Amino acid sequence: MKSGARRSAWRRGTAVVCGTAAIAAITLTAQPATATGAPEADSMSGAFTDAAAEYDVPRDLLVAVGYGETHLDGHDGKPSQDNGYGVMHLVSNPERDSLGRAAKITGESRADLKRDTRANIRGGAAVLRAHADALGLDASARDDVAKWYPAVARYGGVKNERLAKFYADSAYEILAEGVRGGADVRTRARDVRPDRGDYADVPAIGTQSPDYPPAAWVPANAGNYAAGRSAAISQVVVHVTQGSYAGTISWFQNPEAEVSAHYVVRSADGEITQMVRDADTAWHARSANASALGIEHEGFVDDPSWFTDAMYRSSAALTKHLCDTHGIPKDRAHIVGHSEVPGNDHTDPGPNWNWDTYMAYVNG
């Protein structure tokens, strides 16, 4: 069946079934029925199954990549901060065009790849397979999920080898733990030891932060912030990335971004990366740039699943340190959301951010 027919069928609610032989080509995890009893082919889970079979990509690895990018939330076709779209975060910006690559391979329109979940997942599978082909993975290697590591590293679209390794490691961590969230999609936990290939000897991301030792130091591009400050530091601004941790770090290293923040906090475990020195001016809050320290938190404002206790605790410890170091009062007049800064049109951190919990940790 043509991709357009599959896509339309999902919209209409018509069951679509992949060929048994195609499904047998890869190792799949058995999926439970959805809460409404809809057939798998009429669901996001079915879209992953179909796309994995069509492009001979390990289905659960495809899910893990998507979950790491978006928690399997397409955000109604709205772009991330680096102009990525859909569940699989297909990107279109001056440095990277996985959206265009997906359109060329699949024949799907860019508009459908942005807004249609089935088309977007199919596009993600096509791009991941293209990376595998470029790396020379034959049919036998494609049957071994561990061999896909370099292809996953390339899917992240980052030029920094350390960050690419971090991106792939994160996807394989999700694969190992299994996915139990996001629409109707489930994967089982598994023991997987990725074959890192040339990435095996790549050092871990960053060095130690010069201003906050628990954090890693990965400098933003010099064109995305200003050296020095024109005002004393007097507040901390809380942001949400509208994208993934690795993607945000990569974007702040991209000279096309013209934005940055001092720190980025990971959702899963609260890992922190510093990208701009405290004494320099990150471009994150317009009127407050000169006097503020900006902390970006991995996730999307409309999805509370990103705001984990580990993230709250880690970020709060950082904020407490910054307030103590720079003499900032630890109250809501001086620890503010991006949306609360005058002259800004952003909505982050949004209604799902728990300020009571966060401030209790800051002052705990």
Rank of each mutant, 00 (worst) to 15 (best):
L99V: 04
A119G: 03
A204C: 00
D303V: 13
S43F: 06
R277G: 12
Y361P: 01
C18R: 13
M88W: 01
L128C: 04
G182V: 05
Q208G: 00
D76Y: 10
A102C: 07
R101Q: 14
N254M: 04
V16K: 01
I272D: 11
A38I: 02
N344R: 14
A279C: 09
R286E: 15
E54T: 08
G343M: 11
E256S: 15
P32L: 07
D331S: 13
V87T: 15
P213L: 00
K114M: 12
V179G: 02
A119C: 09
D201N: 12
R6N: 02
G223Y: 05
N83G: 02
Y85L: 03
R180M: 09
W217D: 09
V57H: 03
V240F: 04
N83L: 11
E161L: 14
A200Y: 07
T117F: 04
A261F: 05
V16P: 01
H326P: 05
N254I: 07
R186G: 02
Y149G: 06
G343L: 09
S3Q: 07
W217H: 09
V185H: 05
G19V: 02
G156R: 00
L128R: 03
G364Y: 02
T241A: 15
Y245W: 11
P194L: 06
L293K: 05
D211K: 08
Q274M: 03
L99K: 02
A168E: 06
V301M: 11
R162E: 15
G37N: 10
D324K: 08
A171P: 01
M88F: 04
Q242S: 14
P351T: 13
L293H: 03
A183N: 14
Y225C: 11
H321I: 00
A204T: 13
P329D: 06
A227C: 08
P32N: 09
W355M: 12
G136K: 09
G327N: 09
S3C: 00
A189E: 14
G4R: 12
H71V: 01
V185I: 13
L61V: 06
Q235T: 13
G364N: 11
A292K: 08
R277A: 14
E69F: 02
A102F: 01
V336Q: 10
R96T: 07
E296V: 03
V336N: 08
T20E: 10
S267M: 11
Y225W: 15
R266L: 07
N254A: 12
W283F: 14
T49M: 08
V192A: 10
E177A: 15
P304R: 09
L90A: 04
D82I: 08
D356L: 09
Y263P: 02
W217K: 07
D331R: 05
G243A: 15
Y245S: 02
M275A: 13
T241F: 00
A119E: 05
A47R: 10
A279M: 09
A246S: 14
N354D: 15
A22M: 05
N289G: 10
A64V: 06
P39W: 05
N344K: 12
Y172T: 11
L135C: 10
A125D: 00
